[in-house]
Design a protein around this nucleic acid. Sequence first.
DNA 1: GATGAATGAGGCTTCATTCAT
DNA 2: CATGAATGAAGCCTCATTCAT
Lengths: 213, 213, 213, 213
Amino acid sequence: MRRQREREQRFNTILRAAETLFADKGYHQTSMEQIADLAEVSVGTVYFYFKNKEDLLLKLMEEIGFHLRKMVGSAFREADASLDGIRDAGMVFFKEFCIKNPERLSIFFREATGQSARLEEQRKKQFGKLTDDLVDALERVSARRKIQYPSPISAELMAVSIMGIYERVACHFMLWQDRSDEILTIAEDAVAFTIGGVTNLMTLGKAKQPDDG
Amino acid sequence: MRRQREREQRFNTILRAAETLFADKGYHQTSMEQIADLAEVSVGTVYFYFKNKEDLLLKLMEEIGFHLRKMVGSAFREADASLDGIRDAGMVFFKEFCIKNPERLSIFFREATGQSARLEEQRKKQFGKLTDDLVDALERVSARRKIQYPSPISAELMAVSIMGIYERVACHFMLWQDRSDEILTIAEDAVAFTIGGVTNLMTLGKAKQPDDG
Amino acid sequence: MRRQREREQRFNTILRAAETLFADKGYHQTSMEQIADLAEVSVGTVYFYFKNKEDLLLKLMEEIGFHLRKMVGSAFREADASLDGIRDAGMVFFKEFCIKNPERLSIFFREATGQSARLEEQRKKQFGKLTDDLVDALERVSARRKIQYPSPISAELMAVSIMGIYERVACHFMLWQDRSDEILTIAEDAVAFTIGGVTNLMTLGKAKQPDDG
Amino acid sequence: MRRQREREQRFNTILRAAETLFADKGYHQTSMEQIADLAEVSVGTVYFYFKNKEDLLLKLMEEIGFHLRKMVGSAFREADASLDGIRDAGMVFFKEFCIKNPERLSIFFREATGQSARLEEQRKKQFGKLTDDLVDALERVSARRKIQYPSPISAELMAVSIMGIYERVACHFMLWQDRSDEILTIAEDAVAFTIGGVTNLMTLGKAKQPDDG
DNA sequence: GATGAATGAGGCTTCATTCAT
DNA sequence: CATGAATGAAGCCTCATTCAT
């Protein structure tokens, strides 16, 4: 069992090294040797724990996706079916996740993009899970309020839109510029924008309902 | 003169070949030889017109950025200072640009990401211009309505958010899935979401104003 | 005939451009395009006047070799059969040629070395002519003084040695360091060294003569 | 340990292959693939041991420079402060070094010339060390004999001249022509020339001394 | 399990030379 | 004669991956 623990530690050390380097210099600009060097293991060892270079990024995406869902997704689930879940999730994302894990932002939203087809698949999958969480939350809200969104894909569209807001706002204010000191304002405005969007679609939907009934 | 024209045509043929291949198989998965082959010129000719491979993508980004501004940006400028500009721009983006130029979406939002530092700089620049157009439009609206947004960065944040919505919605429904047949609904819902977000921030701003006065 | 003159001028302009660039950045680091640019003609024109890139260096070597022989070689010929010819030649080489034509030194002694086989042949030929001049001068001296050098190849060896001294001293003090201000001392010492060498071989030869008679 | 030894052997095999090819066909005419082939390793392996092609020549120059100093330089040091050191060194250079290592002559005096700037730097450095050895020897002679050379740079100039003689005589009789069978005569004449030159400058210096006192 | 030397395919880029206009 | 766009062979180098020790 000590073996087991050591193995997991190694696995982690290597993944952390990859994370740092991918975020710092970019996926393509990082070589397996550099990862091995930073993790203080040999190249062969990296290949013992990970199938190949792509696998490292795949695993990182999984990990970050899971991390995001845990933080952001749980805000939805814990919240009752009001819009508070949306609000809380946004706050957690900007004020917690972005501030504490800028390198994860970089990997999840930037480095994993424009690479191989399998990576794109993984991105799709991870984004999909987060989107699904959001769709669930949004549908619970509409169910509770007994309203219908204007179109059958409204919930999905809103979820995707919210993801887009998170992504671009984070990239813009955290990666391209470093304005983490303004994060409170950013978070509040962004969340307000989000809430406004959802509310508007709910209003439009309600207006539509008589047609349906 | 004919020389000049032929030169420009050649330049274009090569750029079109690069566009097609980058969008299709990805930037890294495309070799200079493949581009030369598709353009029906020799490798040397590609290098006569473009400094290197990166330069091809740089030039494409510029072109697409310009194209986007022309289509989307002009919607803002032509509109009076109401939210109609925002609405029109969204409609143009989804119903015109996305439908007609999926490969440009792919390049602008996907392939140019996660590559070299200079490319990231270019992305920043092109996104910046589009964002600036949006900020202008949003500030004209607030000026006309004599209101103030809740925070000094609200306009910028909204602009960035809207860009995020465009980006992700386009990637989700056009690139990851092909749901171009639902584009009308998508466009309407997305624009409604956008308008809702802006409206909400205007409302919050207005509410704040008495404090300021 | 104006045609003729213009042609020669073009030929010269191009050769001067090549000379400058070869001396400055080196033969391999200079491209035909750069030569054409500096000469303010098109690449095609360079190829009209010179067979290829190597030809440019070949012609330059010839020109410089001729120049050297004219300056240095004539000192031998004009001098009577004393060692004054050797002395004068050295003085002319260091005080005139080196000072006024550092770029020719660079090409003749450096850039033309370590390139193609044909270039090496040309070097050999040009060095050969200069060596022959020297051999002639040295043999005239021995004939006049009715002495014999210690070995049948002594004259050749001295000629080669003197060339070696010229070459390395020039490279050392003009190209590697810039000590042209000390050129007077350099020239005098170098010539004295040369004269000493020749004198010594004459002495040794004389001593040997009784054995031969 | 065996690993270590094998590594060094590999390093050497590759360097020997480069040496042979550079001397034979020239630096620019040799490709990395050819070197790898001759060394019976893959191209990648060459790059594992050497940074790049230039590095191979750089390392060779260092090695040859060291070799030359060991053989020629030690003759100076071992000799007492008479001119015998100069004589012995010359003999060793022509009769040992040139005969046994013609390919090293080719590389040191020919191939490393007229290439990149860094290579020229290395040439300067290696020549500098040899020159310094000679300067030392010459100054010890003058100190012992209590004489002064005619000028403050006489020692340096003589050292450079002697290097020039070695270089050109070796190139002329070993590389351009193959007259290794006459090496004894060549060596004796060349050394006599050298000794004559040094002696002459000593005489001139002595003659000057009364003026100085 | 760990190591790290070895591999070699594949990519980017340069540039001397040609030739239609 | 002059031009300069086009060619394409050839070279350097990288780096993900493997495997014997």
